[in-house]
Nucleic acid binder design. Structure first.
Length: 571
RNA sequence: CGGGGUGUAGCGCAGUCUGGCUAGCGCGCUUGGUUUGGGACCAAGAAGUCAGAGGUUCAAAUCCUCUCACCCCGACCA
């Protein structure tokens, strides 16, 4: 493509809307333009990159034995009512009626639709296993679209679904997809990390997220510097101290005492008032679990993890108690709750509480706290459990090394769904013995637009994008420094045609503008190999080769330039 | 949805507090010319419902009321 004829518009200045590097560069390099909040137009350069990503994904899915289909974005609401997820998704789903009054929605994902398909088509174990995938636009009415293409209301997703006769089969299908994901992200040049994750709205029990470390990421994940442990912050388990159940009898227990703490309803306030550090304090959080009151005890500097509560207690109906309920249950106002003297309420304590002595708790009275509170002596708990969010330097649950917390962009997520959907939607098959079983499912998603943003977050400099070879919009850019000069123009033309003849994707900057703009633009849009036809051509008949992201530049004769370019591309 | 902020030419912004003359600047764009190894130079030009509606006033980008859009922080996700 000749730049003079291409629909490429770059921006010199940063658009006011953009905050993060990838968003700024995608706008500046002319990859995308915003239509409205959460929806983006892909311009030719952006579309080329997207297509490259799609090609990689498609090749690897096919290689892993998955078969491509295409399901509608427009879906009947009734299937979603049948699975019970319409309520769960709630406002996240774009819904509307068609002219007949039938309820429709724009698919936020496709589990219901494939399961329904499989229900109708698969009747025998002989047809299993099978994995289907598609590349489709998803619609989610996000509460807050942001960071450009990273979180949008409309986005492209590769979603795959595996169907097996049993758990073992699912394990195999899951493993295949997991490996395919690794290959995809490697080919896209991403530094990624697979971590254990929450299953969330998808359901199921095992899942892994693929994270690209980036300060722009919206997720936190935990990694161990010494072993393989890696997890989303929400599922990360802090390793337990070697003596978690330390009986505090042997320790120097001080007498329990009530102290006045006027107006101090937060940990910080109490900490300052009593001059006691938060790790010496215990907060008592009152929740309603299936409408029953529960107290959760957490060390002052720790944070409760509501996801863990759900798993532990086997219900999703968990809400923080309001001030009235707290007063009714504890006898004291919000902000002064404590475990001592609580009745008719289950008390669960985080493991970290077990090794604490002489700590501060609320007194269940206005403006009062208890000091020197001790477990067992002063109150009992129903059980000890892992209730909290991991913090930096917590011990690794596998090897006790100090855990690290990083920020990342979630670019893919794989789930073992089991029979959640096949049961609720009635997708079953007959086994060898003629018995009916629900199919065992897995689902596997990749955010295709996010791969682009993540790649840029991973790889850019002051001057612009530095594309990984596999997803660059063009492999080579030719800069004709002064296209008015016949020798330069003719050589460029010949070079352009020679490279095209070798099936190399080349962008020829033939514009009759000052050289500086061309160099700046080439850097901005990040083409991996830059060939400059200019001064060196006029003086010595040489063409300069420079790789984006490297500083050195070498000069070659015409023929050498072609072979060297090919070498760089294939190597 | 709660909190914070912005809206003036395609893009980036000044002007708004303290109302007043033809609404300005940089980039980009058009035409002609000189240029061409890191966002050139000269000359001439085009381009604005000052987010929208209503109000106050002799007079509104500027003051008041409402509405809309967009961005940032929080809960949610690929």
């Amino acid at each position: 493509m000749k730049w003079s004829q291409a629909f490429i518009s770059t921006l010199k200045e940063n658009p006011a809307d953009a905050e993060i590097v990838s968003h700024k560069l995608m706008l500046r390099a002319g990859l995308i333009r915003k239509l409205t909040s959460g929806t983006y137009i892909y311009l030719p350069l952006g579309q080329k990159v997207l297509n490259k990503v799609i090609t990689v994904v498609r090749e690897e899915m096919d290689r892993a034995g998955a078969q491509e289909i295409l399901m509608p974005a427009l879906q009947p609401a009734e299937i979603w009512e049948a699975s019970g997820r319409l309520k769960q998704f709630g406002e996240l789903v774009f819904q509307f009626q068609d002219r007949t009054g039938k309820k429709n929605l724009l698919g936020p994902t496709h589990e219901e639709i494939v399961t329904n398909l499989v229900k109708n088509e698969i009747t025998s174990y002989r047809q299993l296993p099978v994995t289907l995938y598609q590349i489709q636009t998803k619609f989610r009415d996000e509460i807050r679209p942001r960071f450009g293409v990273l979180r949008s209301k409309e986005f492209l997703m590769k979603d795959a679904y595996s169907f097996d006769t049993d758990e073992k089969g699912l394990d195999r299908s899951y493993q295949k997809m997991y490996e395919a994901y690794c290959r995809i992200f490697e080919r896209c040049g991403l530094k990624y990390k697979a971590v254990e994750a929450e299953t969330g709205l998808m359901g199921g029990d095992v899942s892994h997220e693929f994270m690209v470390p980036s300060p722009a990421g919206e997720d936190l994940f935990v990694t161990c510097p010494k072993c393989t442990y890696a997890s989303n912050i929400n599922t990360a388990i802090p390793g337990r101290p070697t003596n978690p159940e330390t009986t505090n009898n042997s320790l120097n227990l001080q007498p329990l005492q009530e102290v006045k703490t006027p107006g101090t309803t937060t940990i910080e306030a109490v900490s300052q008032f009593l001059k006691t550090p938060p790790p010496q304090m215990v907060k008592t959080l009152i929740y309603l679990v299936d409408n029953q009151p529960f107290a959760f005890l957490i060390r002052g500097d720790h944070e409760l993890n509501p996801f863990k509560l759900g798993r532990l207690l086997g219900t999703e109906n968990i809400v923080m108690a309001d001030a009235k309920t707290i007063e009714k249950v504890t006898g004291g106002p919000l902000g002064f709750s404590g475990p001592v003297g609580l009745k008719n309420i289950k008390i669960l304590a985080d493991y970290a509480i077990a090794s604490m002595t002489n700590f501060v708790t609320g007194a269940n009275k206005t403006d009062a706290h208890l000091i020197n509170t001790n477990l067992k002596r002063d109150f009992q708990v129903e059980r000890l459990a892992d209730l909290r969010v991991v913090v930096e330097n917590d011990p690794c649950p596998q090897c006790a090394a100090q855990l690290q917390i990083s920020r990342g962009i979630e670019i893919g997520h794989v789930f073992k769904l089991g029979t959640k959907y096949s049961k609720s939607l009635g997708a079953s098959f007959l086994n060898e013995k003629g018995q009916s079983h629900p199919v065992v499912m897995g689902c596997y998603g990749i955010g295709l637009n996010r791969i682009i943003a993540a790649a840029i977050e991973n790889s850019s400099d002051q001057n612009g994008i530095i594309w990984p070879n596999q997803i660059a919009p063009y492999q080579v850019i030719i800069i004709s420094v002064n296209p008015q000069e016949p020798k330069i123009n003719e050589t460029s033309q010949k070079l352009y045609e020679s490279l095209q003849a070798k099936n190399i994707e080349v962008l020829w900057d033939d514009r009759n503008i000052s050289a500086g703009i061309k160099f700046k633009d080439a850097d901005l849009i990040g083409i991996p190999i830059r060939l400059t036809v200019g001064k060196n051509m006029m003086e010595k008949g040489l063409i300069d080769i420079k790789q984006r992201g490297r500083s050195e530049q070498k000069s070659f004769s015409f023929d050498e330039t072609v072979t060297e370019t090919i070498r760089l591309i294939s190597g």
